[in-house]
Every structure is written in structure tokens, then in C-alpha cells.
Design a protein around this nucleic acid. Structure first.
Lengths: 351, 351
DNA sequence: TTGAAAGCGTTACCAA
DNA sequence: TTGGTAACGCTTTCAA
């Protein structure tokens, strides 16, 4: 009842009003001005539903939060969301959010949005190496942009952080500090970002002629990091473990590691070095402040939206990608190996 | 083209198919069975836009994240989102998310959703004492359920945590520990939850015959907590400040406080007691592990959705509310005042 | 128990 | 440059 209201008021056809507002060229500028003035006056907004019905698209994009252990309250998603929100709004796109644990329920959530034509496209995050979402969406020919890569046969649009490169750099820093036995604490769950970071660690070690065997795995949460480090410290038979530094797949894990260390009386940054990844807000305030890697989540979010609009405008998703570099933030949780004893020694001293 | 597809296939009218699927009684069970079978076969889903247009409602609810300093990556929202997501899905409601900094842009975001008939209702969080969102929505007659209260003249539906009661309890615990000078670190920005918690602190102090003057304010973030505590420690002229415990409005602030303390060589839990609020995942792993208060965010989210569906079904929002109790989680950042010196003394010792 | 028809607000095609 | 008309897919009278 809205276009028609303007049309009646101005004694124009609905068609003309629609075209005037739609910015079509075949409207006299006088008419356009009148229409625009009236639209402004009554604060006209097109009815979304009607528009969708007619145009056959939703002008909305979906984002499904992976819930489940360790994922449901990760600051990563909030940062992504708040960057993506305004960018989408500017592009005239709505954001439909849902949440589901990875697996069947997750796929069902995607299907729900697709089949109800609720969205035109998706934003994916937390890619898994084998990612069923990619297969489904590619199959269903639903456009999407991902944050992170996975091993799909067909390429897709993505933005990613160069985790490999920067973790290699961080690991080299540790090597430069004199560390010779550097562990990597990986995230469980087939998460791509962890794999990439791990290979940076491996790469730096290999290049330095060191062996990359000290790899552990845990949930990408504080609890996961704590448990893993705790187990490591407990399991050590004197003279066995020689790890003097730990590179963690995420800041949250690093927080747990720091805790486990402190509990055993070990001082991160002196007795053992710890490096995280993400540079979340709390990482400045851990004890000691965490040396970590800042990745441009907000910029990535905006870039993802830009890609999405291109794809929606007809661009080929297979050619769209960007790999962003991350930056090491040196704080106090790592340091020279010189001052450090091997774990078992220190343990013997402090326990 | 979908109802019609079924209707053609089964040689029925679109009307009948619609009614069969809509669960109306005036369809023969035989017909209904045929329709349902076919719908299942082709995996029919009604077109949202069409439905909206016809029904005049969106079957969607909006949630606008308050961005801006200290808010954009608060775990609170993620926990709320992930609870609310499945609950809404079950109720057949979509969730539209956007983000905006409090102020004009925020109101514009609400207006945008309302006027585009994108949503039928809103979920509000982080209520402010004087909250323009409430005024706007009440005026526009758009239903909503809030997490938290504000000082509006007309009542509205809300779920809230009883911050007052539980903070009073926490403060009493501190008093029981022998603390006599207990500070409250409030969140800036007119945030209701902070006011409520503050009054719990004040109440406990007053009841114990102590004065409630040591109140400080900061952004509800790690950095805010750090800066406030840091300033407090620095500003202290020997013999001036006698604070031996700090109750923080949020866990994030408490993390910053812990950091500032550690930096000065003070040990939380011994030299000074710190209590947080929220029991976020990282609070188990701070140094020392944070004594805090767990509020039922997920349960609150689900309850909010339940209220929303009631309101959408015609219930009166003014009668709908629930105040949930929170629970003190004792960890290691607080303790007996006996072992503690006053700040200036300790400072003198350690600096 | 079923069907025909109208209409929700919009856009697009075609004709004037 | 403008307007009439149809159509998007659905629900809801009203009639049969």
C-alpha cells in the first residue's frame, strides 16, 4: 500500500513511482524530484517481502555460528560479526544469523535458510579441511565467501590470514631466542586455521634443522590449552621432555597454557615461552602479557562482504580471494632460552 | 511456483494444497496424505517472501549488537546469540543481526529494520538506565523483550539477573573475610547492570555499618579495568587509600585489575581481593583464577524467546518478566583480609 | 471437502 | 517519458 499511496497522492502511476525511486533513467527529472520528495515526506520504505517475491532474491545473507564446545563464545565471531554488520547494511543486505553445532544440525540450518529462500548467499567462518558446508553450497549453487580455506575440489571465494607465514616467523623468533625444542599446540576438530599455523611452525623448525615432533592437540579453548599443558607437565618423566617453548594455535589455548604453567610454578617468558594467535582483548592482560599474533579480523570481514557483493553482481567466485598478513605482537610471555631450564629441571626445583 | 507445482502434479487446486499443508481441518485425510507425501518428495518449502507479503508479518526478530569501545567483542553477546538462535529457529522465527554504536546510528538501525518490515519484534540487551531504544520501540508499537531493565515509564517484558542480590552476597563474603574497605569498579556508560551490581555492593556495606565511598568507573573492558586500577595504585599517597578488595562490574574489568595488580607486584587473593561478574570461559584461567559470579545467560536467552513468542501470540508485554538468580563461584582471587596489608603498605614493600 | 478468485507490494514487460 | 497489466507464491474469503 505504499508505492500506491505515493502514486495516488501525486497522481502518477505506480509504475512511474517505482521507476523514479528505483533510479531508472526513463523518468523525467521533474517527476523524479516530486516522487522523491513525497517518499521522503511519508518516509517510504519498500516492503521487503514484496520485493523479494517479485525479484526472486532475498537481499540477505546467512551466517551460522558453529556452537559446541569451545566455539560458542569465541571472540573471533563477535569481531567478525560487528565488522560484517555495517558493511552488509551499506550494501543493502540483511544478515541472518543462526547457530548450530558442526555436523548434521549445521547442514540442516544451512538447508533451512537456502530452501526457505531466506538468503541469497552465505558467509562461512572456521573452515574445516574437509568441509561439508562447501560441498553442499557449491552443489546447491548458493554463493558464499569463506574466512579460511578448505580442501574442496572446486575453488571458492575466500579471505584468509596467512597463518603459515606468520607462525613461521614467530617460531623463528623463538629459535632466535635460543629455543631448540619448540612444541605446537594444535586445535582439534579438523580446523583449517590450525593446520596452516602448524605448518608454519613445522616449516621454521625444519629450516633451522630442528625436528618438529612435539605436537599436541586440544580443544581450541582455555580449558583445552590448560588440560593439554597440564597433562604434558604431569606426564614428564624427568629427562624426557625438553620443550622450552609452546606455540599455540589460538590465544584462548594460550591462556590455558599460561594457567597450567603458573599452577606448576613455572613462569612463562622466563622458564618457558608461550606464543598465542589472535591478539584478543584479554591477551594484553594475561600474566604475563601474551606474545601473540594479530590477524585483521575486522578488515577480513569487510573484504568478505565486498567479495560477496561482487559475486552477487555476477563475478566469478573462483577468482576471488585474498590472503591477509598477520602481525606478531611481542609481549612478555616469551623470551630467551638462555635463562630457561628444561621443564623437568625446573619442575624438580619448584615442586 | 511451488504450491502450484504440487497442485498440478496431484491435480488439486492450489487452495487445497495450501490448506492441507497448513494443517487446516477442512481437507480430507486422503488428500492431506497425498499432498504431504508429494511435498516431502519434492522437499517443498514455502517462499518466505510470499508468505510475508500475504500475512503481513516477517516472522523474524532483530538483534542489534552494540559496538563501540568495550562492547564489540564481549563474550556475553555471543553466549546470548548462540542460546537464542536455536530457540528462535524452533519457534519458526528468523534472527536478523546488525551492529551499531549506541546513539543515533543505533536508533537508525532499529528504524531500518522496523520500517522495512524486516522484523516483527526485537531482542534487546545491555540496557541503559535511560534507554532511547525502549522509547522508540514502545512508541512505534514494536514488541520486544529485553535482557535487563531500564527506567522507562511504561513497563516492558524483560529477563534480568539479580545482580544486586548476588553482589551483596559477594560483598558480604569479603566482609566476612575481614575486609573493611571494599571498592566497587563500575562500568561507565549508564549501563543498568552496573548500577544494579553497585547497589548490591552498597547495600552489603551499609548493612555491615561500613561506608560505601570507594567507587570508581571505567569502560567495561580489560583495558578499562587495567587503567582504573593502575591509576588507583599510582595515585595513592602513602596512608591515603586503604582498599583491600575490589568488586568489579564485569569479568573483563577484573582481568585488567588483576593485570594492574600483578604489574605492581601485588598478589590478588592475598594482598588484595578481586571479584568479577560473568564467569566467562577465561575467568577460570586467570592468575589467580577469578572468584566471580555466574549468571545464566543461555537460560535467559531461551526465556526471552519464550516471552517473545507469547507476546507475538498476543500476550501483554507489561506482565512478562523474570529475574534470575546468579551464583557466586569462589576461586582464588579473593581471600582473608588477615593476610593482607593495606595497599600503600604493600606498595612500600614491593616497590 | 474442494476450487476460483482476489490481493498482499513490488517490478518488468510492453504499448502508448 | 509514462501507464496498463501481469506476475512473483502464498493465504483467505466466498461459492460450489
Amino acid at each position: 500500500m505504499s508505492l500506491s499511496r505515493i502514486s495516488r497522492k501525486l497522481d502518477l502511476s505506480i509504475t512511474t513511482v517505482s521507476r523514479a525511486l528505483g533510479g531508472h533513467s526513463d523518468v523525467s527529472s521533474a517527476t523524479r524530484a516530486r516522487v522523491e520528495a513525497e517518499a521522503l515526506r511519508i518516509d517510504y520504505r519498500p516492503h521487503e517481502g514484496a520485493r523479494r517475491l517479485r525479484r526472486g532474491r532475498a537481499d540477505a545473507v546467512g551466517l551460522i555460528l558453529p556452537t559446541g564446545i569451545g566455539r560458542f563464545d569465541d571472540p573471533f565471531f563477535l569481531r567478525l560479526l560487528s565488522a560484517v554488520g555495517p558493511a552488509l547494511a551499506e550494501a543493502g543486505l540483511d544478515l541472518l544469523v543462526s547457530s548450530a553445532p558442526p555436523g548434521d544440525a549445521e547442514l540442516a540450518a544451512y538447508r533451512h535458510m537456502v530452501e526457505g529462500r531466506k538468503v541469497d548467499a552465505f558467509l562461512l567462518a572456521r573452515m574445516r579441511v574437509r568441509d561439508a558446508r562447501v560441498d553442499y553450497l557449491q552443489n546447491a549453487a548458493v554463493p558464499f565467501v569463506a574466512h579460511g580455506r578448505s580442501s574442496s575440489k572446486r575453488p571458492y571465494a575466500f579471505v584468509d590470514t596467512d597463518g603459515t607465514q606468520v607462525v613461521a616467523q614467530a617460531t623463528s623468533r623463538l629459535i632466535g631466542f635460543g629455543h631448540r625444542s619448540i612444541a605446537f599446540l594444535a586445535a582439534s576438530g579438523d580446523l583449517s586455521f590450525s593446520i596452516a599455523r602448524e605448518s608454519g611452525w613445522r616449516q621454521a623448525l625444519t629450516e633451522a634443522g630442528l625436528i618438529a615432533t612435539a605436537i599436541f592437540q586440544a580443544e581450541p579453548t582455555e580449558a583445552g590449552g590448560f588440560d593439554a599443558m597440564h597433562a604434558l607437565l604431569c606426564s614428564v618423566a624427568p629427562g624426557d621432555l625438553q620443550v622450552s617453548a609452546v606455540v599455540c594455535a589460538t590465544d584462548r589455548m594460550a591462556v590455558g597454557v599460561l594457567h597450567a604453567l603458573a599452577e606448576t610454578g613455572l613462569r612463562a617468558g622466563r622458564d618457558i615461552s608461550v606464543i598465542g594467535f589472535d591478539d584478543h582483548a584479554f591477551s594484553t592482560h594475561t600474566a604475563p602479557p601474551l606474545t601473540t599474533i594479530a590477524q585483521p579480523i575486522e578488515a577480513a570481514g569487510r573484504r568478505m562482504v565486498a567479495m560477496l557483493t561482487q559475486i552477487l553482481a555476477g563475478a566469478d567466485p573462483e577468482t576471488l580471494f585474498e590472503i591477509m598478513s598477520a602481525q606478531l605482537i611481542a609481549r612478555a610471555s616469551d623470551g630467551p632460552a638462555a635463562e630457561q631450564s628444561r621443564i623437568e629441571t625446573t619442575k624438580g626445583q619448584t615442586l
